[in-house]
Each structure stands twice: as C-alpha cells, then as structure tokens.
Design a protein around this nucleic acid. Structure first.
Ligand code: MN
Ligand code: MN
Ligand code: ZN
Ligand code: ZN
Lengths: 143, 143
DNA sequence: TTATTATTGATAATAATAATCAATATTAGT
DNA sequence: ACTAATATTGATTATTATTATCAATAATAA
C-alpha cells in the first residue's frame, strides 16, 4: 500500500468527521504500515514503545479501531487469541491457513471456493455480506 | 443423538480417567442434549437454574469442557460473542451461515467446498486438521 | 492569541473465562 | 456398611482482553 495514499485516506476521514490529525495518529499509522501483517494492539504498542514515542496503549487501541473505520485496517480474531489487525486498503479479500504449531498465517485465495460460498448462501435464502474461512493445521516447516 | 449412547460415551470417558459420575454431570448432559444447538454456558446455566438443580455456573462451564474433551460437544466462537457449544457426537462436520440481524445460525454443507479447501491447503504445503467457514449476512426473514 | 473541543494517557470498569479452595460426594477396598 | 482416598462442587476470586472514564493537553478555527 502506498504510504501517502494511506495517509490521505486517514487525513480525509479525519477532516470529514471534524477530528484532529495528531502526532500520535501519524506515528501509529506509519508504524502499522511498516509492521508485519496480522499484528495485535499489544505488538504494535511494543514497537512504538521501543521507538520512545510515549504513546499509550489505549491510544494505539483507539486508533487501530479508527483505521478500521476508515478502511485502512481489517480486524480479525483467530480462536480466542487477541484481536489482530492487518492492512486493508488496496488489499483484496483473502482467507487464512493458520499453523497451530508456530502461529504462521498464510494468506490464500480461491475464486472457486468464493463462488461456491455465494451459491451455498443463495440456496439457503441467505444474503451473504462477508465470510471467514480459516484452515487450521501445520505448515511446511512444522509438518 | 441417542441419549443412552451419549451417556455411555461420557460414562466410559469418566471411568477411563478415574473421574466420578455425579448427579451434576448427568443433569448437565441431559439438559445439554435437550437444549437447542449452539448454546452458551450462560444459557445452559439458566435452563438448569429454572429446573432448580442448584448447579453452579462453574460446574456447567467445567462440564461442557469435559463433554468437549470426550467428543460429545464442539466449541465454537462467533465474532466476539460468548463461546457456544453444540452436540458433536454422531453429527457430521458442517459450516455456518450466521444472520447478523437476528442471530439465527443455519448449518450447511458443501462437499465441493470441502474438497477445494483440502486442495488449497495442499498447494500451500499445508497440512489441514480442521477448518472454520462462517458466512455472515442476513437470513430470509431479516432480508 | 484565544476559545473550543477532540485527544491523549493513565487508570478504572467490564466481561468472559478460568483458577482457587474448603466442604462435600463418589468410589474402591475392606 | 464403613472407611479412606480423592475427585467434584459451588462460591468466589483471579486473569485477561477490551473498552470506558476523565483531567490535562493539544489541535484547530476564528
Ligand atoms: Mn490476512
Ligand atoms: Mn453447528
Ligand atoms: Zn508452522
Ligand atoms: Zn435473521
């Protein structure tokens, strides 16, 4: 994702809602964009702490939620772990293979599955809005 | 699921592990079998409370976990709701359509999707053990 | 510069789940 | 049936993730 584009999205969202563009928001956005995918609030908070930004946990939490609101982040919950956030803007939908041994998360896509899911909903008179497919097992290394 | 068969499974599991077959366990099992699918600890606890069984919340919680251990129950977590339990013995695997308006849960199955999931794992050098497919949207009534 | 008010960061509240522990109940052995 | 051993219960507390609170501060517009 383009950094400037991401900043624009956040900035415009903030202006539209009469919110304020703070040093903390800029810092959290940049750090989030640099960080690995599927990061928790705690993990992002720890990265920011090492940078001596003095940003509090609550602020990280609040602003990841804000970034979700404006479409820059997606929220995901795996099992009963902590909520994870991943970059969403410019990313196409994908599902996840989750290694139960090392925690690695592999992003995958299968159009045939996507289409069959829509059909499955249809034959059940169900109007699908979103879905979650997670396959749990062990990855190559942990086999 | 056959009641006697279910009791046998629990009973044998308990004997194998040198545990004890208590009045509470029998009561919780029977009530769980009679209750609707995808029930929470709290919901089951409330049913038991109405029956004046005097069984505590912690005991319900512990024993639903036990029933999961012996294969009589499956645990599922939808979004950030409370954990739900459903009968597992004699039930084939299925996925869920979840109405975001009324909370209705429709159980579905599609062998083609199942097979494609296995292939998807395979091409990613991933060994699948279980999976979770949930489609969120609105049901017929809530359309 | 000033007034307004959104934001922050520390902390407390909430809520789901699990752990603790003394009292009690179950079980096996006699 | 009695006893000893110990698993279980139920009330309560602890833990953990998430969210709310609030006084101090910072961002924004006039
Ligand atoms: Mn992902
Ligand atoms: Mn089900
Ligand atoms: Zn792995
Ligand atoms: Zn509905």
């Amino acid at each position: 994702m383009d950094r400037d584009e991401a900043r624009d999205i956040l900035f415009n969202f903030i202006k539209e809602k009469s919110l304020r563009y703070t040093r903390q928001r800029e810092e959290i956005l940049q750090t989030f964009l640099s960080a690995g995918r599927h990061i928790t609030v705690e993990e992002l908070y720890n990265v920011l702490r090492k940078k001596n930004t003095g940003i509090g946990y609550a602020t990280v939490h609040r602003n990841l939620k804000l970034m979700k609101e404006c479409g820059l982040a997606d929220e995901m919950k795996i099992g009963s772990d902590k909520t994870r956030f991943e970059q969403a803007y410019g990313q196409r939908h994908h599902d996840h293979l989750i290694c139960m041994k090392c925690g690695r998360i592999i992003e995958v896509n299968d159009d045939r599955i996507e289409r069959l899911q829509d059909k499955l909903a249809e034959v059940n008179n169900f109007f699908p809005l979103k879905h979650k497919l997670e396959i749990y097992g062990s990855c190559k290394k942990c086999r």
